[in-house]
């Protein structure tokens, strides 16, 4: 019964979506705002990666909201999983094999370095704070898999997260008094194109986002792995 209703609903939705898809031409230019961003992003923000200049330049306030959503989701996950008994540690986890634990010692700093490279070069090459943060969180995931007894340093993680969030908001507020006087306005020198110290506030904000996302996602994994029986 439920499967039949589901299939009928799916057929109706599928026909509608299919007809509307055939009306959208593939591979043709469509929006004018995209052309504007591509033409003017280098002069306006100083970043050579146009996607980065849209995410943290033109629409930085949007990104602040997105980071807030991620923070609230991590908070809600902790609240849903928390019980009155408190945390008891992880039981019944097998110790990892020699290859995983030995490889982790070698790989952990390299993965952290790679994540930091991704978010510091977000304005020049593909990548940015969100991708770099996810890479950093996967390094902590590797630690959890290789040595189940180890725990994330909770006060350190929450300190990193709050400080980087505060840096993001503080840079936005500084834009009100300096530069062109609006929230998240650029007040640092833009520098030469295609160099590491260019693009004004974009690398600073992306470093803050990278640290914040990395510590939040590592905290999410940590919360899910806790046994709270």
């Amino acid at each position: 019964m439920r499967a039949t209703v589901g299939l009928i609903l799916l057929a109706v939705i599928g026909v509608g979506v299919g007809i509307s898809l055939l009306a959208i031409p593939f591979g043709a230019p469509k929006t004018e705002i995209g052309d504007y961003y591509i033409e003017n992003a280098r002069e306006d923000t100083g970043a050579t990666n146009v996607v980065t200049s849209v995410v943290v330049g033109y629409r930085a306030f949007d990104t602040l909201g997105e980071v807030t959503v991620l923070f609230v989701a991590a908070l809600g996950l902790g609240a849903v999983l928390a019980t009155a008994g408190g945390k008891r540690g992880r039981s019944g986890v097998e110790p990892a094999s020699l290859i995983l634990s030995a490889g982790n010692i070698f790989l952990f700093p390299l993965i952290l370095l790679f994540g930091a490279y991704i978010f510091t070069h977000g304005h020049l090459t593909p990548g940015g704070g969100f991708q770099g943060g996810a890479v950093i969180a996967s390094a902590f995931l590797l630690v959890y898999l290789s040595s189940p007894g180890k725990r994330i340093n909770e006060s350190g993680a929450s300190l990193t997260e709050s400080v980087s969030g505060l840096v993001f908001v503080a840079i936005g507020l500084l834009g009100l008094t300096h530069g062109t006087h609006y929230f998240l306005a650029n007040f640092l020198p833009k520098g030469a194109l295609n160099t590491l110290f260019s693009a004004g506030i974009i690398p600073v904000i992306y470093c803050a986002i990278g640290l914040k996302v990395g510590s939040e996602l590592a905290g999410v994994v940590d919360n899910l792995m806790e046994e709270t029986e």
């Binding site: 996607v51 849209v54 995410v55 949007d62 997105e66």
Partner: peptide, 19 residues
């Protein structure tokens, strides 16, 4: 160049999706 606006949108959507 391809349109950067949908790419910025989808970047946001992926991160919200994992949350």
């Amino acid at each position: 160049m391809v349109d950067p606006v949908p790419q910025a949108l989808v970047l946001t959507a992926i991160v919200i999706g994992v949350a």
